[in-house]
Computed example of a mutant assay.
Amino acid sequence: MAAKSGNRCNFWLPKKKRSCSNTRIESSMFCGNHSQRLDGEWIPCPIDPSHSVLQENLEGHVKRCPLLKQTVALSGQLFYQKGINAGNEEEEEEGKMGSCCPDSVVTSEMKRNLLYSMSVSKFHQLIKKIETVHGGICNDIEDSYLSPEACNVWFNKEIDRKLPFQEKHVLQQGSILGNLEKIGALKRCAKNVECCEIDPEEKDDDKNVPAVVEFGAGRGYLTQMLADCYGVKKVYLVERKSYKLKADRSLRQKENLVLERMRIDIEDLNLNAVESLSGVPYVAIGKHLCGPATDLSLRCCLSRQDGESPVLRGLAIATCCHHLCQWKSYISKTLAVTASFFGLSE
């Protein structure tokens, strides 16, 4: 075993067969991640619940939390409206459920415990109900895997830029865009990969080329592919986290392309209040959105429309993690109630 560096953490990582490479805390043999937690009551940070702090340090922490500045700046934005897409407690369908579906978050552990507490007969009854409902809804839904010709520059690896390229992701992204083209929401760009140069005669014709709103955008490579292959004028990347190695730099180099990255939770985004989207047709896209994020995105796009609202031309979302769905934000409560999933009897 190689000798440990004097200022490195001494925590041994069995899977990597080496010690942690982080710098250790001055008064400890370990780094901050591997030091034993101090005794005391740890509570979630009120600004960013993804981390916790000691109760006794809370007052000082909230003044210097890394997300404090971003939270303050966000609260001043017109499109920020806390919980606007979270779901309405007074929805008719939810009222029918009574108190069996509380508004609090139901964790995966709670769901597992509920299943484990079921009798065998009730469990089989639930499975049969799910299969029946799924069969009734999905019989007429066909798989649509497309490889549009417009995306050949990506499929053939002809892109001349240093972007992360993984074939499986490119094929998935191409199919999402191909299905939008199939329904007429996107039109193929007649030019090459640098097709964002708009003809002078079309410069003021925003109706021909829709804007793009990508939910859960991450690094933005789905939008990068769309911009390369279909030619768009406005791009809005919605993501609550901050990522490195983003496609933003490449997108900003395109002439006539306006890019806006909105670091905000989809739950709090009022799309109707985005001034530059007022009255503009747009296409909504998302890749690998979890169940709750998909519901929130649908609520965001399908909110009440008026003459000044953005005009939704098409929507394509590749979902994942359906088991994380929550009743409050669930977009189709009527279906769940009508299907009688709740109150299953022996």
Rank of each mutant, 00 (worst) to 15 (best):
E94N: 11
N256Y: 04
E267D: 06
T294F: 04
S28T: 08
A227I: 06
E346R: 13
E202G: 00
I137N: 11
S50T: 12
F341K: 07
W327Y: 12
Q70P: 02
G216S: 00
D199I: 07
G76H: 01
V53K: 04
D199G: 08
V72F: 02
P310T: 09
I141V: 15
P49E: 01
S278H: 09
F341A: 05
L58E: 00
A190Q: 01
R18E: 00
L237P: 02
E267L: 02
K328T: 08
T23C: 04
S75D: 11
L237K: 02
N270F: 07
S309W: 01
K63S: 03
N156K: 10
Q70R: 13
G307C: 03
G136N: 13
F165W: 15
I331Q: 01
F79S: 12
M225V: 10
P14L: 08
G83A: 13
H51T: 12
L344M: 09
E197C: 07
T294Q: 01
R261W: 09
P210S: 01
I264P: 11
V106L: 15
P200Q: 02
K182S: 07
R8C: 07
R24G: 03
G32M: 04
N139Q: 15
R161A: 15
F341R: 10
G184L: 01
H124C: 12
D268C: 14
L163V: 14
K82L: 11
G60D: 05
L74P: 10
S99V: 13
D48P: 08
D205Q: 13
L67Q: 05
G60F: 00
I137L: 15
K333W: 07
G136A: 13
C100K: 06
M118T: 11
K82S: 11
F30I: 02
G60R: 01
G6A: 05
W12E: 00
K4T: 04
G83R: 03
S50L: 03
E109N: 13
S309C: 04
C229Q: 03
C320G: 05
I47R: 02
K168Q: 08
Y116A: 13
L114T: 14
S19F: 02
V213G: 00
R252V: 05
S99M: 10
P164Q: 06
R64I: 15
L312N: 02
Y80W: 10
L344V: 06
L13C: 08
K4R: 11
S121D: 10
N270Q: 12
V258T: 14
E260H: 14
Y282A: 09
M262I: 14
L163W: 12
A2P: 05
E260K: 15
C321Y: 10
R64A: 15
P200T: 09
K187I: 12
Q326C: 03
Y80R: 08
K333V: 06
G279P: 12
N85E: 07
S104P: 00
K96I: 07
C321W: 04
L335V: 10
R299F: 06
G32A: 08
A3G: 08
H169C: 05
E89I: 14
L277F: 11
K128R: 08
V311W: 03
A336C: 14
R219S: 01
R161K: 14
T294H: 06
C300A: 14
H323Q: 11
